[in-house]
Simulated assay, not measured.
Amino acid sequence: MRRHTLSTAVTLCFAASLAAAASAPSEAGPTSPPASHTARQQARVPVLVDCFWHPEVRPTDFMLACGDGNSRLASLHWMQWGPNSAKAEGVNVVNDCKPYCAAGRFHSYPVVVRLDRAQPWKKHPQLQHYTRMTLEYTAGRPDTFSPTVTYPLWN
């Protein structure tokens, strides 16, 4: 009985620490805009809304498959970030899900990322956010993907 209670306590502590880590705000890192940007300047440029509903400007990484994490953008280098569009180069890291996703392997494909169609964000109407993302695969791509893939972005 004592062993079961200890095991349960350890499991609950681990779950609580994971929940706290997931909900804690992260420290400002490379995904944060430079310190020279003021709130007024940030309001003028559109943001990219991530899986946790956080506005991002020039993120270095971006999760495409929020539900399972099987597709993400990494090593993004932004060449442009303006009121009408944004453009970056990076890699799309995609799980091949063979024979199934939990046993699959991740593969990296070079891409050009384009963002456009900035509109007011429903959650924060004072901010514009990009509503469409286009990926252009420049050297190889997942078997079932077209050379160019366009995604609507959440609002």
Rank of each mutant, 00 (worst) to 15 (best):
T60V: 13
A86L: 01
S36V: 09
N84L: 02
T5C: 01
R105C: 04
C97W: 01
A88Q: 05
H129L: 04
A9W: 10
G140A: 10
L12I: 15
V45F: 02
S108C: 04
G69S: 04
R141E: 13
N95M: 01
L48Y: 03
G90N: 04
N155M: 10
P152Y: 08
A35H: 05
Y151Q: 01
P142A: 11
R105E: 13
F52M: 14
T38P: 03
P33V: 12
D116T: 05
Q41N: 11
S108R: 08
T131D: 04
L76A: 05
S26F: 00
P30I: 02
L73E: 14
L73P: 05
D116V: 01
P46T: 11
G69T: 07
A65R: 09
G104N: 05
T60P: 02
C101D: 03
R40V: 15
S23C: 07
H37F: 15
A43M: 00
P59C: 05
S108V: 05
R40N: 14
Y130R: 04
A22E: 14
T134F: 00
S7L: 14
D143V: 06
T11S: 10
T148M: 06
F14L: 10
T31R: 12
W53P: 02
A86D: 10
Q41D: 15
P99L: 01
T150E: 11
V112N: 09
S146Q: 12
S75Y: 13
L48S: 07
A118F: 00
K122T: 15
M63P: 00
N70Y: 06
G69Q: 05
L135S: 05
M63T: 13
V91Q: 09
S36Q: 09
A24G: 07
Q126S: 10
M79N: 15
K87A: 08
K122S: 15
S146A: 12
C101T: 03
Y137I: 03
A9K: 01
M133N: 12
P147V: 05
V47I: 06
A39C: 03
Q80N: 02
R44Y: 04
Q42I: 14
